[in-house]
Amino acid sequence: MGAATQVYAPSRAASGARRRRMRARATVALARLAVVGCMVAAWAITATLTTSIPSFGSTMTALADGFGEGWITEPLGSTLRGAFGGLALAALVGLPLGAVLGRSRWARATLDPLLAGAFVVPRVVLYPALLGIFGIGLNAKLAMAALAAFFPIVLITAAAVRDVPERLVRVGRAYDCTRWQLARKIFLPATAAPVVGAVRLAFSVAFVNVIIAELFASDTGLGVLVSQAYGQQDLPRMFALVTLIFVIALVVNMVLWASERTLQSRL
């Protein structure tokens, strides 16, 4: 039947397109793996040329020792608790505030310049004041992370809510949605992707600030270990810590980035 071939033909074309897309995706994935290979190779080559960079093998041994002997686990936990705790606190306050700012032209006009101004100030200089309030320890780091993560979350959430197309809101109103339904069925799906992006950026800022805070003054944490390793001129240990920090940054970013893309494609 003519109708059957008409249905069949495009679907074959579609499957061809899908195969091409999958092949392209596989190439990109391979290229991304190759980047890791290239970085390790470049590291290995540079290590043979200079004594200020330890060999890849000795660094990995130091990293494995860190987990085996346990000197890395407690500081790692402290750094992650500080970064994620601060992020959670910032999200708890920042997301609702961002949503309000996004919907209210007046609130935006009033607060936007203040928030944008605070965003560009290097907030790490406030760490001494936080040390004064909380004392040296986890709470000061957590507060630092929260302070750092708060501004990107509020600013991006507000922009995302503001940019929800008015026609979507009108559709919701036409269906007699309650305020709650409007928030859940219209605003949540329409802003999910940029909000995850905001959380990703906020995590990055929080993580960096916690490490900087630890380099300045803290009782424990990866930053403290880095400055200790530098003090003892223990290069493999130092590079092991730097590698671990990059891997954490990479893994958290990849997870959030992937969910951001999934949410975006569902829209």
Binding site: V35, S204, V205, V208, I211, L215, I245, A249, L250
Partner: peptide, 15 residues
């Protein structure tokens, strides 16, 4: 390089 570039946002280059 895209994922690595994005992850560098979270890299405290200061170390």
């Amino acid at each position: 390089l895209e994922p690595y570039l994005i992850a560098l946002y979270a890299m405290p280059t200061i170390v």
